[in-house]
Design a protein around this nucleic acid. Structure first.
Length: 745
DNA sequence: TGGATTCGCGTTTTT
DNA sequence: CGCGAATCCA
């Protein structure tokens, strides 16, 4: 780290002129790097960081490097570490806003009446607490869902508002005008619980740093941080901005990197304004624009440029590439979601034939529920895939503990699992005992569990410890023998109860405890769908493995557009480009033009994830919430420039085969739709009849004419065990138990 | 109290 | 449609 700056061969930096490079690397004072998609934003930041270190402008503890997501933080740590020749970056001030603010707050917790050991509540805990407070105030939680109020409070915290700053103007008639007081009570309650929610981490720090009585604290941070680096600046919310500004007032050496066109977290408090206002907030700021894209081919980039150009209120930039034009974007209109999934499957197979790795392919959807049809199709095709951002359930502490117990029962030699729970709940087997056990195990080349069995025969351990170990081994042996004649869900209940694990959380007064108990319940009930314990554990390890990214086999990635931020793939599928789904109706209803523009930025993010090939599709009929909805192509499809796309419509889909699907004749479209809807309800059309031969256990089939004692005559349109969905004509579709129904002719 | 049934409602996601 | 929450009822 003492050597002269290493030559920067990075292509990104080569694209900078001298002044820009100078600014990126060493400028003192505020710098805003405005960089479009695929221009190497993060690399610029890492380069600045590396340069500061190498030229001894700062040492690690003097740099505050902030990212938005954990993924980005990991990525940056990794890059910095390898740039620094593998030096560990633990302990550096490098991480997400929340992680760094939490770390800071632990050092000054007493200034806001907390202990440094405060717990951090997640959203569920937060809602539970607020609900309690509301009930105490006799507020109707039906009229005012606790979730909604919790969201409101979070959004205030994102804006940096303490209870004192919230007046009637903000609360309106929410919770009968009592929301302001609920907020205050909630904060009070958190304090008594020695807890924080996520918003508090920043809010408390802002409060501390702003208070003149704590001038020494602020001064200390000013001395400490010579340089501040911020990634994804367009996603910062007001609280984050305030925190940054307080810290940056010292050295004024703040370097922010961002792209206003990729701001997609507005619904969570991100303020594009932060980036638009940068020059005002930090006078004398150097602004650097990076417009050369190193990621995508010309067609892809032109399409993205054309779409985003429809937004107003941008700083404005026009990305260019020196890559060739490449393939045009394939745009396809299809009949329904099933056909869409089939088409995507076919195209993926074609890509495999062209020697693309499945790892290079991603399906990016607008909303989580869309992943389902792709999963189903890919399973049919035997196409390996992973859904990114799926269940994080198994990563929760209580779930991992519970799983560890089951793993030891299933496989006594699972040392890691045993070590995890050997003293959870506390039973007096501390580090010293575990060390003794490990020493013994290593010396004899046996597992930890065998070491337990060995040592309980000897007098090497204190009698008390010995008894505890005997009890523990005894428990495990008993559970293991139960496994043969007890269902695995019952076994799990026994394990959790008899080990004292459930009791541990029941006795825990912390606000997270109820949530954890619920999760444990959920775990047990979730096990039911698996045959037995080993199969279940196998599933869990597969799920977790899949989330660990490189499971060895190639896999297509399926994820939401939000989840795809910061990633790139050679081939990207963008399905579901229909009005109402994308752009999302709700986003437009709630935020009008602002909402629409954020959706458009999402489209921009989607397209620009692709390096070589992009595929966009939309369907004529999508089933949402169980009923068929007609859909028209997204306005974003219309915004794609004709020269850069290759449009195909499914033949026979409408009276306009081969034409550009977004120009569908709306009257023709309506006729198709009406016909389909009718046929669905009658249970006659070929689409529907494919399922009509299914009979439920009491002999009802789709299409049966039935009579219900209360609702009269109707037609069975769906079955779910003994539940039947019956269309009763005028009075609509109802779900009823089949015991209330008789067949009619 | 918990098992069964009905009701209600549905983006995006980070700590 | 499917899921979780609320509610009902033994």
């Amino acid at each position: 780290m003492q050597n002269a700056p290493a030559p920067l061969s990075d292509s990104v930096l080569n694209s900078l002129n001298d002044a820009q490079r100078q600014a990126v690397e060493t400028t003192e004072g505020p710098v805003l790097v405005l960089a479009g998609a695929g221009t190497g934003k993060t690399r610029v930041l890492v380069t600045r960081l590396a340069h500061l270190l190498r030229s001894n402008l700062a040492f690690p503890g003097q740099i505050l490097a902030v990212t938005f997501t954990n993924k980005a933080a990991q990525e940056m740590k990794h890059r910095v570490s390898s740039l620094m020749g593998g030096a560990p970056v633990e302990g550096w001030w490098l991480g997400t806003f929340h992680a760094l603010a939490a770390r800071m707050l632990r050092r000054h917790a007493d200034l806001v009446g907390l202990q440094s050991s405060f717990t951090i509540l997640d959203q569920d805990d937060q809602v539970r607490l607020i609900k309690q407070l509301m009930e105490a105030e006799n507020i109707d939680t039906k009229k005012w869902p606790a979730k909604m109020l919790a969201d409101k409070i979070s959004s205030w915290k994102d804006k940096g508002w303490m209870p004192a700053q919230v007046g009637p103007d903000q609360t309106g008639d929410l919770a009968g005008g009592k929301l302001g007081s609920i907020y205050a009570q909630y904060q009070q309650r958190l304090k008594t619980l020695n807890a924080c929610d996520f918003g508090d981490l920043l809010l408390h720090m802002i409060h501390i740093l702003k208070d003149p009585r704590n001038a020494d604290v602020l001064a200390d941070y000013h001395r400490r941080f010579k340089y501040i680096l911020v990634d994804e600046y367009q996603d910062t919310n007001v609280a984050q901005y305030l925190w940054l500004r307080l810290l940056a007032q010292g050295s004024n050496n703040i370097c922010c990197v961002g792209d206003d066109d990729q701001s997609i977290y507005g619904w969570r408090g991100a303020e594009v304004d932060n980036i638009l206002r940068f020059e005002k907030d930090f006078p004398g700021a150097a602004i650097i624009r990076l417009e050369e894209n190193y990621r995508s081919t010309g067609n892809i980039l032109s399409a993205a440029n054309a779409v985003i150009a429809n937004n107003e209120g941008r700083l404005g930039k026009q990305l260019f590439t020196s890559h060739g034009d490449g393939e045009k974007i394939k745009v396809r209109g299809l009949w329904d979601g099933e056909a869409e999934a089939r088409w995507v499957g076919e195209e993926i197979e074609a890509l495999q034939f062209k020697k693309y790795s499945l790892d290079d392919i991603a399906v990016l959807v607008r909303a989580g529920f869309q992943t389902r049809e792709f999963e189903e199709r890919f399973i049919q095709l035997g196409l390996p895939y992973r859904v990114i951002g799926g269940p994080r359930f198994y990563e929760r502490m209580e779930i991992r503990d519970a799983l560890a117990y089951m793993r030891v029962v299933n496989q006594p030699n699972d040392d890691l699992a045993l070590e995890r729970i050997i003293n959870t709940p506390k039973r007096g087997l501390g580090d010293t005992t575990v060390q003794t056990l490990y020493t013994h195990a290593r010396a004899k080349g046996i597992s930890l569990y065998s070491a337990l069995q060995d040592l309980m025969q000897t007098d090497e351990l204190k009698p008390k410890v010995k008894t505890t170990i005997m009890k523990l081994v005894d428990d495990f042996e008993r559970w293991r023998s139960m496994a043969s004649n007890t269902s695995h869900t019952d076994l799990a209940k026994h394990i959790l109860d008899e080990s004292g694990y459930t009791a541990m959380w029941q006795g825990d007064k912390s606000p997270e405890a109820p949530g954890r108990l619920e999760n444990l319940k959920e775990l047990v009930s979730g096990m039911e769908e698996f045959e037995n314990l080993p199969v279940f554990l196998e599933h869990v390890s597969l799920v977790m493995e899949a989330q660990n990214n490189d499971a060895g086999t190639e896999q297509v990635s399926i994820m939401t557009l939000h989840g795809a931020k910061g990633l790139e793939f050679k081939c990207v599928f963008l399905p579901g480009w229909e009005e109402g789904l994308f752009p999302s109706q709700r986003s437009m209803d709630e935020n009008g033009l602002k909402g629409l523009e954020e959706e458009r930025r999402l489209a921009y993010v989607g397209i620009t994830r692709a390096r070589e090939r992009a595929y966009i599709s939309h369907v004529a009929n999508r089933r949402m919430y169980g009923n068929w909805m007609s859909a028209i192509p997204s306005r974003f499809v219309d915004e794609l420039p004709e020269d850069h796309i290759d449009v195909q419509a499914e033949t026979g889909l409408h009276g306009n085969a081969g034409g550009r699907s977004s120009h569908w004749d709306s009257s023709g479209f309506g006729v198709e739709y009406a016909a389909r809807k009718t046929s669905y309800i009658d249970g006659v059309s070929s689409k529907v009849s494919s399922k009509a031969d299914v009979t439920n256990q009491n002999g009802f089939s789709r299409g049966d004419k039935v009579f219900h004692e209360k609702f009269g005559h109707g037609t069975v349109i769906h079955m779910d065990g003994q539940k039947l969905d019956i269309n009763f004509g005028k009075s609509g579709t109802k779900r009823v138990m089949d015991s209330f129904v008789t067949k009619a002719d």
